[in-house]
Design a binder for these strands. Sequence first.
DNA 1: TCTGGGGTCCTAGGACCC
DNA 2: TCTGGGGTCCTAGGACCC
Length: 389
Amino acid sequence: MKSVFLHVDLDAFFASVEQLEHPEYRGKPVIVGGLPGDRRAVVSTASYEARKFGVHSAMPLVKAVALCPDAIFVRGNYHRYQEKSQAVMDIFSEYSPDVIQISVDEAFIDLTGTERLFGKAEDVAKRIKDEVREKTGLTVSVGIASTMYIAKIGSGMNKPDGLTIVPEGKEIEFMLSLPLEKVWGVGGKTLSRLLNAGIRTTRDIYCKSESLLISLFGDSTGRFLYEAVRGNSGLTFGGEAKNHSISSETTFDFDLVERYAIDTALMELSINVVFRMMREKVRSRTVALKIRYEDFTTVSIQSTQDRVVMNADDLFARCQALFTKKWESGRGIRLLGVGCENMEDQSSPIQKELFDFGEEKKARVEEAIYKMKNKNPGLEVTKARLLKK
DNA sequence: TCTGGGGTCCTAGGACCC
DNA sequence: TCTGGGGTCCTAGGACCC
């Protein structure tokens, strides 16, 4: 059976939600990511009106303010975006049982074998676009192709409110028409390595043998490039991500140098991570700490122990130990991050003899706090040392 | 214009085991 | 004395994505 995939991408998602909920923002440049004066913020999403001024995602906010001082700036309400996202994803699942959400604003839909039920993919795509607009007020761009990889690239070709179809048999022609920067999975580093090797177009890649690409770019990247220009890549339905991790990090407005302030930050990050592990019902034995110094050099240290992280105090203590080991005191710290990796399911058996009952009690107290917070998101229940700001 | 936050996957090297 | 080959687990750093 011929495979048919849709890739659906919400247009300027966060900015569009803001314009939807604040009619006075419509038709105006809206920049989500921070307020003017947030020293170290970056643009998360710029509305199309703001993009005309050259503003784009990942741009330092300071520059966005310089380019478009009259824009409407908002920090963003990620909880609302998450709700809107879910409403859109629910629509997708009406059209196929096989939907993979790959981020808050995009998903693949496998339409293989649904033609008799729902009609041609192109018509399904139009119906999805209409239904999303009617039910949520948002617009989406869609790519349709025989591979997920090409559908993904296709959805980006005619934004906003686009519909791009790459017909069966035209996959390679499509890939060879793309500039290298549009090849999904090729970032800045690989791009300059390609240019250094004299490879300037997708056709240049297409003409090289797989073994040559592997010898030039290594096993993984070489194989990927060979497949990508033929319209394939590792993208599949049904593959399970196996290295799940949960992390929380903060960039400080001003660099930290003092241990007390550092510990306070580590405590706050530890609480975030533990709450999210509770919510997702997972555990971990591997704790990772990230330090970014004032000059942007970034180091990390992690350790795996026999026992799982029991509660926020436990995670905090492990972070402190890692921090002490790694920190070059005297260097200002602009970012701290705390994470847990290699998640295990909470239903997996826990070794009784490793289970300390004092720790269990703490875990239960924290869980109670977590539940209270869930019932009343405005409630400020937290560790004493975090209250005094 | 100094560069967010949340992820996943890959690489290269070391430890340890058979 | 100059030393295999394979496997697994772990670590630090990097590339890439939205």
